[in-house]
Structures are given as structure tokens and as C-alpha cells.
Design a protein around this nucleic acid. Structure first.
Length: 216
DNA sequence: GCGACAG
DNA sequence: ATCTTGTCGC
């Protein structure tokens, strides 16, 4: 069992070497997809909401149901959710410029959060947005709405802690793949409206749960 | 050794 | 994440 984890660690480290944190997404940016999952006993409902950028109008919504085969293990989330997200991305008809994934990107102990994992496997630009911290260090939390402070891991900047909504806990943003550090924050901020999470993710989260309740 | 630990 | 009622606050 420990050997099993060792193999997965090596995969993460190998994938981390493939990550490119430069702005190689299409410009001007016109389509962003938020991807999130909801769970039932033995399956996952995965939702993608593609919105126009920067107007954020819904362009295409889609859900898929898939089986889960890997448990949730902190730092190994990509092996649980990654395959389903890749399946969703590969099934979309619209050409999406950047994917926002509900997870961390490079702000990960092995530099391989689920957003980075998905980006490398699909070679699509990705940004990771999480509601809580995993391994980053930061000096203090931003207090003013809209403000962000860098977060570090082993001495280098790997993302941001962003006060996305006045009376909510801050969120954690980190580039996944084919997106730079600054752009990951800028794009995320441009997608903020009335919720703590950026619109693509807020809508994908809501859609996944609506679909889950519908099929139950 | 102990605690912490995305979803 | 999920299982769950009411409840406090914007």
C-alpha cells in the first residue's frame, strides 16, 4: 500500500516537471469553463459551465455522471477527481480558453494539484481555485474585499490568498498549467460577481448539486 | 512522535 | 465532499 502511494508520488513529480506557468492561453480570452463535482454514494456528478469573458453570460452547460474508483486522500485528489474532469473537458464541443478547477494548482506539496494535473494531461490552460489552504504559507490574510496576498511554498510564490467577498473567508488561487501566476489572479478576480467563488465555479457547483438532487 | 491535510 | 433543522445575518 505504501508502494502504491510511492508510484503515485512519482507520477505527480513527473507531471509537475511538465507544468508551464506562462500565459499560453488564447488571447483575447473569450470563453472560460468552471468545473466542479458533487457526490452520491458511489458516483460523481461532474458539471461544466462555460461562460463568455468578460461578460460572464452562460454559453454552454453540461453534466456527466461517472463512477469513482479512488478514495479521497489529501494531496492525492487529482487521482480521484482528475480522470472525471479530463473526461468532461474532452467531451466539450465549445473551444474553451481557460478552465477553472475547484482545487489547487501548483500550490501543492508535490506541485501537482488537481488543476495542474488536469492541465498537463489535456494540455489545456487551467487555474486552481480552492476554499481552503493545503500547504501554502502566507504572512497574513487580506482583509479588504478584492485584495490578494501571495502565498508561498518552499520559498517561492505559488499562488494567492484572495479576499473575494467581504464577509467570507478568503479563497486560494494558483495557476494550474499554461497560465502565469499574475494571470491566474487577474482572471479569477475578473470572474467575481456576487459570490465568494468566481462565477464559473459558483455556477458549476450549483449545477452539479442540482443534477445530483434530480437523479436521486 | 504529533498534528495537519484541496474535495 | 456527504449526512442534516433550524437559525442568524445580510
Amino acid at each position: 500500500m505504501e508502494e502504491r502511494i510511492d508510484v503515485l508520488r512519482k507520477i505527480q513529480i513527473a507531471l509537475s516537471l511538465e507544468i508551464v506557468n506562462e500565459d499560453l492561453f488564447k488571447k483575447p480570452l473569450t470563453k472560460i469553463s468552471g468545473v466542479d463535482l458533487a457526490f452520491t454514494r458511489q458516483e460523481a456528478i461532474i458539471a461544466s459551465v462555460i461562460v463568455s469573458y468578460p461578460s460572464l453570460d452562460d454559453l454552454e452547460v453540461k453534466t456527466l455522471v461517472t463512477e469513482l474508483n479512488f478514495p479521497y486522500v489529501p494531496t492525492l485528489l487529482c487521482f480521484r477527481e482528475g480522470p472525471a474532469i479530463v473526461k468532461m473537458i474532452n467531451s466539450l464541443r465549445s473551444k474553451v480558453d481557460v478552465f477553472m478547477i475547484n482545487s489547487h494548482g501548483i500550490a501543492h506539496p508535490f506541485i501537482c494539484g488537481c488543476a495542474s494535473y488536469v492541465g498537463v494531461l489535456t494540455q489545456k490552460p487551467t487555474i486552481g481555485v480552492a476554499s481552503s489552504n493545503l500547504c501554502s504559507k502566507y504572512d497574513y490574510k487580506p482583509q479588504e474585499e478584492g485584495k490578494a496576498l501571495p502565498v508561498y511554498y518552499e520559498g517561492r510564490t505559488v499562488g494567492w490568498i484572495l479576499k473575494s467577498k467581504a464577509k467570507s473567508r478568503p479563497i486560494f488561487v494558483s495557476p494550474g498549467h499554461l497560465v502565469g501566476l499574475d494571470s491566474s489572479l487577474r482572471i479569477t478576480k475578473e470572474c467575481l460577481r456576487d459570490h465568494k467563488l468566481p462565477e464559473p465555479l459558483f455556477r458549476a457547483h450549483r449545477l452539479a448539486n442540482e443534477e445530483k438532487n434530480r437523479i436521486l
